[in-house]
Design a protein around this nucleic acid. Structure first.
Lengths: 197, 197
DNA sequence: GAATTGACCGGATTGTTATTTTGGTCAGTT
DNA sequence: AACTGACCAAAATAACAATCCGGTCAATTC
């Protein structure tokens, strides 16, 4: 096995890992193919045997990120528990996923500062995928009557927006909230609502 | 009166109105002081007898906008009605306030496309002022037990974010919603919550 | 003489051209 | 057959010139 790895090291994997680090550290635009090749210990041409261009390489990295988030969610969800509990659990785990967030954070900054179209599209793809995932998992509790019936797509969208409002965006209006505060507030505003019962 | 207007036309008002139109039509950066002076039928120097610089002129226009929104809200609110009803009424009126929205829309676009710092600060000022206003008007219904107790500042912030998610931002994910849909969804997500009662 | 004006100034912005960087290729090496 | 890196054209950046615009103030008007 060690010998085999020596003989045929997995170039593709090397490339993906180097690229992943580079995109997270420098963003889309500032990551050069020469750089990735160097970091991967690979000739530049080799990259192009696996990926048609920089764009496709980037999309692969994003797919990995989405896959990973989905996996984290999947292994956290417990279908015997109430919907709200699952939602909270998943959010808590995703919140703690700092390192993987680095790519998202860097891309967000790049969109703000440089406006790189590719970074913007990438973030939108991640966002769409998260919304689709949540929307999917909304249908069961709705059918079961655990939560009210509503357009799952729109509901998932609103959930994400509220989550982001509590974590990322609102930094300049309310002091950064702790993970527990985020969870408590999310439950309060999103699930329970302001109306008295 | 007509004669008096002829004799001492209100230069300050002329300037403010011309500037207001120009900021709404072209944004902060693309509005030049020469242009404003021309449109106001006034020498450029005159502007500087009322406003120290372009920035102050802009801030005055924003103050006017905020004052106007506040006035619309104030004359709509009926303290004998339930909180949720008032909220809906005010939203409905603000939603229909197309002309005044023009300035906000233009500034939003300018922040997106040009990143003009002054436009960004201006929008944030408007946002802060709206949040402060809502927060103020949350305390009474909270005290009366009409809605649940919570940090008014944060609650107001979440309300605005939800409103914006339903109207402005979400254009690329859900088709633009009609005014009625926005109101219905806002009531659903913000007031009632997803939990079944 | 108070209010108003517009030519004028310098710093910022925009347009232009020269230089460098970088995504992608492919002849040659291993 | 897998892999490499010198090479190319196009895109990005830097350097510089030309223009624009916020702000001032001496001259003008009322």
């Amino acid at each position: 096995m060690t010998l085999m790895e020596r003989r045929t090291p997995d170039r593709r994997k090397q490339v993906i890992e180097a690229a992943s680090r580079s995109f997270a550290a420098f963003g889309y635009k500032a990551t050069t193919m020469d750089q990735v090749a160097k970091a991967a210990g690979v000739g530049k041409g080799t990259i192009y045997t696996f990926f048609a261009n920089k764009e496709e390489l980037f999309e692969e990295i994003l797919k990995d990120l989405i896959r990973e988030l989905r996996a984290v969610a999947e292994e956290t969800v417990n279908h015997t528990l109430p919907f709200a509990d699952n939602l909270m659990q998943v959010l808590q785990r995703v919140l703690g996923y700092r390192d993987r967030h680095a790519l998202v954070a860097k891309l967000s900054q790049e969109v703000r500062d440089l406006g790189t179209p590719m970074a913007k599209e990438g973030l939108e793809a991640v966002e769409r995928s998260i919304i689709a995932y949540i929307a999917n998992h909304l249908e069961e509790p709705m059918a079961k009557g655990e939560i009210k019936r509503a357009d799952p797509q729109l509901t998932a969208y609103m959930m994400l927006k509220m989550y982001l409002a509590l974590t990322a965006e609102g930094s300049h209006l309310h002091a950064p909230l702790s993970a527990e505060e985020v969870l408590a507030h999310f439950r309060f505003y999103c699930i329970e609502g302001l109306a008295v019962r």
